[in-house]
Simulated assay, not measured.
Amino acid sequence: MDSMTIIAVASIVTAGLTLGIGVLGPSLGEGRAVAKALTSLAQQPDSAQAITRTLFVGLAMIESTAIYCFVVAMILIFANPFWNHFLAASGG
């Protein structure tokens, strides 16, 4: 295997692991947040507006972590900085 193939395989595997592991935490966190919000809504229906607003802000913050992982994976696949480094070192 040449160096270009090793970089490609490492990039794809790393992107897959980034998405797999990086989305696992936020998805569990979102599920737990929604479950707690529903419990809170059931116990105090008068506070529904405040609980819902806070829930959506929290979900947006949690989801941003998964989006960052997606962006890192896309950079590794489509705009990998190691490609340019390797090409410059090999003279190509």
Rank of each mutant, 00 (worst) to 15 (best):
P26L: 14
W83L: 00
V57M: 15
E30Q: 13
I77N: 03
F86H: 04
N80R: 10
T14R: 00
S27T: 14
G58A: 11
T65R: 01
G31M: 14
A8P: 00
T18S: 04
L55E: 01
A10K: 06
L41N: 02
Q43P: 00
T5V: 12
G29F: 12
L38C: 05
G31W: 13
Y68M: 08
L24D: 08
A79Q: 08
G29W: 11
I7Q: 03
I12M: 06
I75T: 14
A66N: 06
H85S: 03
H85D: 03
T39A: 02
L87H: 05
S3I: 01
A89R: 05
L17G: 11
G25R: 11
A42W: 09
P81I: 15
S90C: 02
V72S: 02
Q44P: 00
A88Q: 13
V71D: 06
F56G: 03
F82N: 04
A8Q: 10
T39N: 04
M61Y: 10
T39M: 03
I75W: 10
S11M: 09
A8L: 08
T65L: 05
F82C: 02
A48R: 11
E30A: 04
W83Y: 10
E30W: 06
G22V: 14
L17M: 15
L17Y: 11
E63C: 01
C69T: 12
A10W: 07
T52L: 13
A66M: 10
Y68P: 00
G92K: 14
L28T: 09
D46V: 01
S3R: 07
A48F: 10
A35N: 08
D2R: 08
P45S: 15
L59K: 09
K36P: 00
L28A: 12
P26G: 04
A60C: 07
V9C: 06
G92R: 13
F86N: 01
L87R: 07
G16K: 14
L55C: 04
F86K: 03
G91E: 10
R53K: 11
I7N: 00
Q44A: 08
T65A: 03
Q44N: 12
S64G: 04
S3D: 07
F70R: 03
A88G: 03
I67C: 04
G16L: 13
I12C: 01
F82Y: 08
P81M: 15
G58F: 13
A50G: 05
I77P: 02
F56A: 10
P45V: 00
L24C: 14
D46K: 09
E63Q: 10
M61N: 02
P26S: 13
A48T: 04
F70P: 00
L41P: 02
L76R: 01
S27A: 13
A10I: 15
G31R: 12
I12W: 04
V57W: 11
F70S: 00
T18V: 13
G25Q: 10
A37M: 08
T5C: 05
T18P: 00
V13P: 01
P45W: 15
A48I: 03
P26I: 15
E63V: 04
L17V: 14
A37E: 07
L28S: 06
G92Y: 14
T5A: 14
F56K: 07
W83R: 01
